[in-house]
Write a protein that binds this DNA or RNA. Structure first.
Length: 203
DNA sequence: GTGAGGATGCACT
DNA sequence: GTGCATCCTCACG
């Protein structure tokens, strides 16, 4: 059974949505072809007071998507050459999002080899920048509604529930990556990943 | 195996 | 002008 997640899935507490996204599947449609990846690692960025979040410095041209409706893609460029893909959560007007850090490629069996780089023409997806590159997610996807709705039934990108359940005991909570500047928020255990999964970006 | 440093564009001060 | 929600390469041994 496969179903595209709708807006009400994302309209909840960000930490809850982040954990619920583990084990869901990212589907990217490009010219009639589909790429699929199981989400194995995420980070939560929780509201205007979270100093690690871009939204903590107020609503700007870049961050306005986070202040908008849940279930929209927030994509931005980082370090000049990589993109990060986030999904907006919670209510309209409250800036929060979940960063997709790593997925497990469903098309590929050579897990160990593929972790490092391109093997058998299938790009690596164990890291936010690499995932975006592999799934061709760039700033054109910023502000796209990734939910199913009547007006536009098939977005170019969506999240699917295929009935996989991740046990609570298999979810690891850890510190977020690259947010040393975030003072009392830098040590929050708001990164979640599937225990022992080979595709997680860092141990 | 591990760690340091560079690449690189753009939002924000 | 500064500093990134990153990743790769190249030393080291």
């Amino acid at each position: 059974m496969q179903k595209i997640l709708k807006q009400n899935f994302y309209k909840h507490d960000t930490l809850t949505v982040a954990k619920d996204l583990l084990g869901k599947f990212v589907v990217r449609k490009i010219g009639g072809k589909k790429m699929v990846g199981k989400i194995v690692e995420v980070e939560a960025y929780c509201g205007p007071r979270d100093l690690a979040s871009h939204a903590s410095r107020g609503k700007t041209e870049r961050t306005k998507i986070m202040f908008g409706h849940p279930g929209f893609a927030y994509v931005y460029m980082i370090y000049g050459m990589y993109y990060c893909f986030n999904i907006v959560t919670e209510s309209h007007g409250y800036p929060a999002a979940v960063l997709i850090r790593a997925v497990e490629s469903v098309n590929d069996r050579n897990h160990r080899e593929n972790r490092r780089n391109v093997i058998n023409h299938i790009p690596a997806t164990n890291g936010p920048g690499k995932f975006c590159k592999a799934f061709r997610i760039d700033k054109k996807m910023n502000g796209v509604d990734i939910c199913r709705n009547r007006a536009r039934p098939v977005p170019p990108l969506w999240i699917e529930d295929r009935g996989m359940k991740i046990k609570k005991a298999d979810i690891v909570a850890a510190k977020r990556i690259g947010v040393e500047y975030a003072k009392e928020y830098k040590d929050k255990l708001w990164r979640f990943y599937i225990k022992r999964n080979e595709w997680v970006s860092k141990k």
